[in-house]
Nucleic acid binder design. Structure first.
Lengths: 303, 303
DNA sequence: CGAATAGTGTCTGTGAGACATTATCGT
DNA sequence: ACGATAATGTCTCACAGACACTATTCG
């Protein structure tokens, strides 16, 4: 302790510990997971749900991963906050603002990007579908909505595997992945490690680790839809309860009992004066979100 | 298929010619929120709980914020993953490995650090107290456990304010903050914006935005202790149920009914052959964690 | 009237909360 | 025996799940 005061010692320690690349800096990007829910095109995949979950992807027109699909995103400018960068990317891609967005996870593996060290902060945004025209940024040739589906394949005591498929609206681009979650204990907590394997036969793939990001976002969405009002962000100001239920069912991947769903939802909504009529059955009541509603469980969020 | 090769060539050339200096880059650090639970020193604060939640802080010996307290942490090296950096910092500070750790949030405001643009990824770790001797890193003069307490002051329809106090074990350093959460709607989701005000009279303060990190970690801990087995990480291999209950009560900030607590916990633990005896009352059964226990709700985690 | 979907009523089981009671040590 | 804390039993109530039933339109 006393030789702390000796300048020579401090200097020597400094030199011993100093590594020249210690202060080399990584690049930082944001990647946007922009989800919406849309009516399923009839005839095609005969899922039991009337709606489909979609994510916005771009086609990369530059290396690396040129011609592959990727999440929209870009570098964080030195004079803007990460969140501002995320909002900027969202606006650039969809031309909408003031929608729900939350930070998802920060991806920091060394070789995520073959060019150089890139750390990516992923954000999830939920937007209503109508009146939204995706815009390709300058690093992309196009921006397209992709239908995302995850269905369980098998489960045993040590792992669970699922099929995660990402398919363009017109069906031209199909990407399939086998996602396997290996259960593990970390400290005393049961958790799992995720591995992803592209299906042989994919003509196009997702760039970087973006399929991992999509998978994590799906899980987060599934979790949060149960205990928050997050799903309302996928619809417009006015909606019917059957529509809302379809959104829930699409995200959760299972059907819900109508009566129970309504009992849970009714305190969160207000009846409007409008009804959807000219339908071959009883007219449907329109509702809107009840801003007075306050659930005990809300998420901790930093602005 | 044939332009695959062409694309590959383009990508290879691109990578060779790529000059990564186009954009100015931020520095990236990790900050560690290392928590433990320890017996409360008698006599002092007459909280009703026998244990206290503690966090490991260091005293900064370099500017900026020299002489202030801060979370342990450091720069992410260019050739290590963010998570590896977090594990490295944890080991440097506590000399322990293989404990529970999770990514908390990434802090990206432009002026977090007065020197330059620094983005920080925060990690929360939970460690058992005994047999752990904190080590001051090379940027710190000491590493000390601080008692953390958060108690509600008042709540109304638009906001809620709490007193967040961080106090060294010996009582010499006390830092108090008023934390106010303003309820807001973001999209259709109720959320809140957090503001923190140091109490006038603090002789020492927390550096950077670290008080925000501590606040967020406390909320996360409070949430997760209810639906995960995270709390077991704060104890050693064998523990008694009253001890475990004290840990829960400390984190949650309220007392629990013993019978109900045990009904909830019993499936997660296994009785051992040991009892704590020589106590002035009925002997206490030691338990250990049941690795077979699997709760439906587990956290999505990336390794 | 029948097809179709909207919307409601009600029974049951599960689990959290509150509290009462019994058990087993040291002194 | 008594103080002290461990450990268990049980009642109630809220709520989610499952399902049956009624309502209202179009054609």
């Amino acid at each position: 302790m006393k030789d702390r005061n000796q300048t020579g010692t401090i200097e020597r320690e400094f030199l011993i510990n100093y590594k020249p690349d210690r202060y080399e800096r990584p690049s930082v990007t944001v990647d946007m997971l922009i989800f919406t829910v849309d009516d399923a095109k009839l005839g095609k995949s005969k899922g039991t749900f009337g709606k489909e979950l979609k994510i916005l992807l771009i086609k990369r027109k530059k290396p690396p991963f040129m011609e592959d699909m990727a999440l929209p995103g870009g570098f964080v400018n030195i004079e803007e906050s990460i969140q501002d960068a995320a909002y900027r990317e969202l606006k650039e891609e969809t031309n909408i603002e003031n929608v729900y967005m939350e930070q998802l996870y920060t991806w920091g593996e060394v070789n995520r990007d073959p060019r150089m060290r890139v750390i990516s902060v992923s954000y999830m945004a939920l937007v209503p579908k109508e009146g939204l025209r995706p815009i390709a940024g300058d690093d992309a040739s196009e921006a397209i909505w992709f239908v995302v589906k995850k269905r369980d394949l098998m489960e045993c005591s040590t792992n669970k595997s699922s099929m995660l498929s990402v398919e363009s609206e017109d069906g031209c681009i199909k990407m399939g992945y086998i996602v396997t979650e290996y259960y593990e204990r970390k400290g005393f907590v049961n958790t799992f490690r995720t591995e992803v394997e592209p299906i042989s036969g994919n003509e196009t793939n997702l760039a970087f680790d973006h399929i991992h990001m999509i998978n994590m976002a799906l899980e987060r969405l599934k979790n949060k839809v149960e205990y928050t009002q997050i799903a309302f962000n996928l619809l417009h100001e006015e909606f019917t309860l059957p529509e809302l239920q379809q959104v829930y069912e699409t995200i959760l991947g299972r059907t819900l009992y109508k009566a129970n769903f309504r009992k849970k939802i009714l305190p969160m909504v207000i009846k409007t004066d409008n009804k959807k009529t000219n339908v071959a059955h009883r007219p449907v009541q329109y509702y809107k979100f009840n801003p007075e509603y306050y659930a005990g469980e809300i998420d901790y969020k930093e602005e």
